[in-house]
Structure formats: structure tokens, C-alpha cells
Design a binder for these strands. Structure first.
Lengths: 102, 102
DNA sequence: TCAATATTTCAAGAATCGTTGTACTATTGC
DNA sequence: GCAATAGTACAACGATTCTTGAAATATTGA
């Protein structure tokens, strides 16, 4: 996890639409959801959702697999775990006594 | 930590300048740095840095205290810890077996 | 093959964000 | 008080990002 990837992931989580999408996919792990189910669930126009799904996929935050005419999206949980580890390191490395245990 | 605050914090960390500022302040915790020291350290124009510091302060990611004519900025480590906890919950609550321990 | 369905791509405009220079406020030391 | 210093506020512009409708692509089922 380098700074540039972290920045990209934060950017990916910095829109409420994308955060909602990610949370929905976490809730529906590990089976994931197809694009139409996400759109219905979050009441989003297909084009707008597609725009955000593409951004999140490019960032590596979610994965997509084709299922016939459907696209199934899944949260990339290991990337999220790596981000948590990165943040913990950012937060605690220098001065553990002033952060981790409060 | 609600979704809106999380979104705001991610937005705050989604620029490489702001991420660099935060990392610098973590490295210099708990004493913090005054604005001029940050500007020198990151080679940023004062106005641009001020713009980002204001955004980060509004988001609650950093704190500021006045010291005479200086403004001293410190990383808000407990907010960062709360964000890590939020992300961990987002990542692991639904299906711990598929995330936390890999 | 053909119509229906699922999703993406593209283009255009709206909205937001980032950067910079200039001006302003506040504090310090003489 | 006055000049110097630290930092912020404001305004303008450029650059991104967001949103939407229309068109394109691909798959399915009849």
C-alpha cells in the first residue's frame, strides 16, 4: 500500500454514492450483486451507477465478473483490510502511546 | 462515526497534498507544526496550504491552536482511530470469515 | 433472427475542487 | 506607532468530477 494507492482508495470512498455502493457490497459479500440490483437498491440511474462502479473497479476497491448479460460486482475485502492496515500504520507508527490505545 | 463524517474524512484524505500534510503531522505528534513549517516541509505556497488546512480542520482531521502570530496544527489521532474502527466495521461486520483474518 | 434486457460508452453541461495572486488581519519587536 | 512577519480571506480562472440522456454493445429467450 503506497501513498498513491491510498489516495486513490480514499478518493473512491469520498463520495456518498460510492461509499453506499461499497457498504452494500460488503453487506452482500461474498456473493456480490449485479449492477441492476445495486441500482434498484440505491435508486440510482444506470448510467450514473455505471460511472461510479467503473471508478471503484479501476481503484481496485471492487471486482467485477461477467455472468451472461449481467455484471456481478463484489467488494474487494482484502484491499479494504490493507487500507485499514495502512491507516493504522499512519496513525500509530510514530507515537503509539498517543494514539492506538485511546 | 456516521456515513457523512466518514465521507468527509475520506474526502479530506483523497488529495495527495492533504494526505502528505496529515502524515507529516502524525510524524510530528504530539507537538504538531505551525503552518509555515508545513509549507516549507512540503514546498507549498502559503495560500494553497491554507486552503487545504482549512478543509482538513473543518473535517475534524486536524486541530489548530493559535500561538502568537503562528497557527499550530496537530493531527487528530482519535478521529483517525475512529475512522479505522469504522472501516474495520464496514469491512468485517457482515462476514468476518471472509475478511479480517486474511 | 428478432425483440427484450442489462449494462456501458459517449457527449454535453452543471457543479465542485484546486491553485494562484492580491489584499487583509493579527501579532511581534524595535 | 511602525515595519516586518505569519497566516487567512477573497476572487478569478482552470481543471476535475458528477450527472444525465441518447446511442451502442452484448446476451438471452422466443
Amino acid at each position: 500500500m503506497d501513498n498513491q494507492l491510498a489516495t486513490t482508495l480514499f478518493e473512491s470512498l469520498s463520495s456518498s454514492i460510492r461509499l453506499d455502493v461499497f457498504r452494500l457490497l460488503v453487506k452482500n459479500a461474498p456473493s456480490g450483486l449485479v449492477a441492476g440490483e445495486i441500482a434498484t437498491s440505491l435508486a440510482l440511474p444506470a448510467t450514473n451507477l455505471s460511472f461510479h462502479l467503473k471508478a471503484m473497479t479501476n481503484a481496485g476497491l471492487i471486482n467485477v465478473t461477467q455472468e451472461g448479460r449481467y455484471q456481478r460486482y463484489r467488494a474487494n475485502l482484502s484491499v479494504m483490510q490493507a487500507l485499514v492496515d495502512y491507516l493504522t500504520a499512519e496513525c500509530c507508527t510514530a507515537h503509539p502511546e498517543s494514539c492506538c490505545d485511546n
